[in-house]
Design a binder for these strands. Structure first.
Lengths: 177, 177
DNA sequence: GGATTTATGTCAGTCATATTGACATATTTT
DNA sequence: AAAATATGTCAATATGACTGACATAAATCC
């Protein structure tokens, strides 16, 4: 059962290609690595020009997608400490991409929003990624997006799935199997 | 066309859920982020205990999957500099997880292999990830693995796809659209 | 066979992003 | 009033990346 002794064979499996069983899964894991690597390469290049990094991108993205996000929610999403978030968020605020507003019901909260400058950057960063994913799903066949989303969601920690489903707004299109 | 003005509507799209168009793609991008985040969380925890990081994992993985890998190939796969690889690879060699052997045809090459200790770690790190992906694909429906693989492969830079296809051993199962 | 290129390694310095721990402040809840 | 909560900040440290420079051995070119 080690991942070296079942290559190329297929052992009667009617599935695609020459891989079967665990090797098939391992190949998918590598594809996930490469896909993610290239997925972040476009914004990475843009960010470098303005002296930002991936951390800035993630923050810009989630604030842009979820205006009024609380700091504690953002910490939970990114799974980093407040000290790590602090420095990057400070830069984004100081350079005019993000602003904060005290919560109305709870004035301890600092709700996060993008400025117009922030929204503009958000759009520029997202554009190549949206194009990349859209093209990939079209090329993957009809309803690939549903299958892709289900696979990704089921790959997250079970305890988090409901929260992620709500956050992303994803609803299953039925048609499972 | 900005990603704020088309939520929840659906606009007659027969597709699943309440999202349509660009918002749908953006939701998928977030799912990709969360899936990847959780996908690496299991090995991350194990690595921490022995004083290794993600960089060590990636190296262990690719050497384990492709024994005899050349240093230059590994650099290309990971897209890092030789200086970055150097320190981490040195640790793996010094602590007995990896060994090198000069190439027979070209004795400048240092072919990379896992020791038994390295293979053992490789297996332990991979196990939870294999389980996670296998479960996710089963839950995503029949043939989800083909669709998933096609989507991921098409998400990589086009110039690299053939190389990645060969490296992972993935072959398309036909049945596209 | 000497010059050049290639594959790899290494030293030194820097940067981005993460960590832990401690402490501060404002506000809400008990 | 006391305690808990949401957030911010200071300081020290670790990891993993970078650039640039230089070194060595082996292969290849002319």
């Amino acid at each position: 059962m080690s991942e070296s002794a079942r290559n190329v064979v297929g052992s009667g499996d009617p599935k695609a290609g020459s891989l079967s069983g665990e090797d098939r899964i391992v190949a998918l894991m590598e594809l996930l690595f490469f896909a993610y690597r290239d997925f972040i390469s476009d914004p990475d290049a843009m960010l470098e020009e303005i002296g930002f990094g991936r951390a800035h991108h993630r923050i810009i993205h989630f604030i842009g997608r979820h205006p009024g996000l609380r700091v504690s929610e953002l910490l939970g999403i990114l799974r980093i400490t407040k000290q790590s978030l602090g420095r990057v968020l400070r830069e984004l605020i100081d350079r005019g991409y993000v602003y904060q507003k005290a919560g109305e019901r709870d004035r301890r909260q600092r709700l996060l929003f993008l400025t117009e400058k922030g929204r503009s950057l958000h759009r520029r960063l997202a554009a190549p990624q949206i194009a990349r994913v859209a093209q990939a799903l079209e090329a993957a066949g009809p309803d690939a997006d549903d299958t892709f989303a289900r696979a990704l969601l089921n790959m997250t920690d079970a305890a988090e799935r409901e929260r992620i489903r709500r956050l992303t707004g994803w609803e299953d299109g039925g048609g499972n199997g």
